[in-house]
């Protein structure tokens, strides 16, 4: 059995100096900003609110709803099934498609009030090794309880979409090491509909129940 080496990552937030005051400007920037920026604006909330789920799961829907007052569009953007996307470019295309359609159907759109512009940001990811290593399922469970939320986030979210592995690291390791069913159970969990701590608890429960069988 290959050991699971727990790693962690820390983000540095970069300001891109680009802003939008209405939906048209938002669309222009969404089309051309870096994929790291799209990723940042759709995942930032997860780590900022690790114990509870805010109403808007991404910056775009939050701004469209609260600063532009476009509640219907905000809800559509908020409801995009992030879990289905393995690639940031596909996610970008989805947002572009939704906003373009909305702009075609709605001609008179207003600017946000001054001071509430959307500011585009991005993030630079620094990956580090942690002292935690698992050589069997019991080790894995113990480590899962101890690692920081940033390490947990790295293996659940960054691995799949930002590092383009197509799947979270936990499921892959479990499947590769004889725990196929457990690995699949974890990969079916939609991590975007849980808080990070809630998701960690759920995975811990799945493993503990598996051990009791």
């Amino acid at each position: 059995m290959n050991p699971f080496i727990f790693r962690t990552r820390i983000n540095q937030i970069e300001l891109l100096g680009k802003r939008a005051k209405n939906l048209e400007e938002l669309l222009i920037e969404i089309k051309q900003i870096s994929s790291a920026s799209i990723y940042h604006h759709t995942h930032r909330f997860l780590e900022q609110h690790i114990f509870f789920s805010p109403e808007h799961p991404n910056d775009f829907s939050y701004w469209i709803t609260t600063s532009l007052g476009l509640k219907q569009l905000g809800e559509i953007i908020a409801s995009v099934e992030m879990f289905e996307f393995k690639d940031i470019e596909l996610l970008r295309n989805k947002f572009v498609e939704i906003i373009q359609k909305y702009l075609l159907d709605n001609s008179s759109l207003r600017n946000c009030i001054p001071g509430e512009e959307f500011h585009f940001m991005s993030s630079k990811m620094f990956i580090l090794s942690t002292p935690f290593q698992a050589h069997n399922l019991e080790d894995f469970l113990n480590c899962l309880k101890k690692i920081t939320i940033h390490s947990f986030y790295f293996h659940m979210f960054e691995a799949k979409m930002r590092l383009q592995k197509g799947e979270n690291d936990f499921s892959r390791w479990l499947k590769d090491n004889g725990f196929r069913q457990l690995g699949e159970q974890i990969s079916y969990l939609d991590p975007y509909t849980h808080t990070l701590e809630g998701l960690r608890k759920k995975i811990i429960n799945l493993i503990e129940n598996y051990q009791k069988r």
Binding site: Q12, M125, L128
Partner: peptide
């Protein structure tokens, strides 16, 4: 403090994803 440390490190690492080992 963590942000400051990353700021200093970022001066020596240009890419969006930096593996510090």
């Amino acid at each position: 403090i963590q942000d400051y440390l990353l700021l200093f490190l970022s001066l020596y690492n240009k890419s969006d994803i930096v593996d510090l080992g």
